[in-house]
Design a binder for these strands. Structure first.
Lengths: 108, 108
DNA sequence: CATAATTACTACGACAGATGAAGTAGTTTA
DNA sequence: TAAACTACTTCATCTGTCGTAGTAATTATG
């Protein structure tokens, strides 16, 4: 299990990744992250939804509603141009981060 | 430059790494981290010293004084058995974290 | 020789992101 | 009929980071 402080800087990135190939909504993204990581990382509901708010405020995602008659109303999200640019930046940053942290990892 | 939220979960680990090969003190550790990462990561003073407090409270490091006549008095730190165990855990966790995050990184 | 820079911290308050707990509300399964 | 699942929302709290500022001693500079 991964501690939250590690992923802290990348929760937004994970969500944006999940939106790269098309719109989605909270519950689905949550499930997909869980599955993709084989339960190695489970994003908490509150973390996820507060990330949506932040991402939308920053203009990285847009919310909208589908007209669907069934089920509880979902808020769908799609990534924006700005969000894509931010995602790419984060990917670059991640490479540097890995290099940096790896210098402090000793093998035994 | 790396954002602080990324390293957040690993500042303690970086410090412990710096103590693996012997005792040191704040200012020295700070300089060494800066040099080792070629300025790619600079730990803020307040972050560093608050990390010392936390690490000592958790029993991961021990503080002591050298009897030195010169300069402002330094607080030296050494890593404990518990600290070493924690460090090793963190190294393992880091490997998993890398695998997880890398699943959300797309190459362009 | 005065002053700036460097070394080596300490105190304090603010802030952002993560989280636990709890609640709402509709749908599907047992 | 109740439990489980889907799909959120609100709120209050905690932790770690960071900006600002201050203290105090030593060393370099002009």
């Amino acid at each position: 299990m991964i501690s939250s402080d590690v992923i802290r800087g990348y929760n937004d990135t994970l969500i944006l990744y999940m939106l790269l190939d098309g719109e989605s909504y909270g519950y689905e993204i949550s499930k997909n992250i869980r599955q993709l990581t084989q339960e190695k990382y489970i994003m908490k509901e509150t973390t996820l939804y507060s990330a949506f708010t932040r991402l939308e405020k920053n203009g990285y995602i847009e919310s909208f509603f589908q007209d669907e008659s069934l089920g509880k109303r979902r808020t769908y999200y799609r990534i924006t141009r700005l969000g894509l640019a931010y995602y790419k930046e984060k990917c670059e940053e991640w490479k540097v981060t890995q290099e940096v942290v790896n210098q402090f990892i000793r093998e035994w």
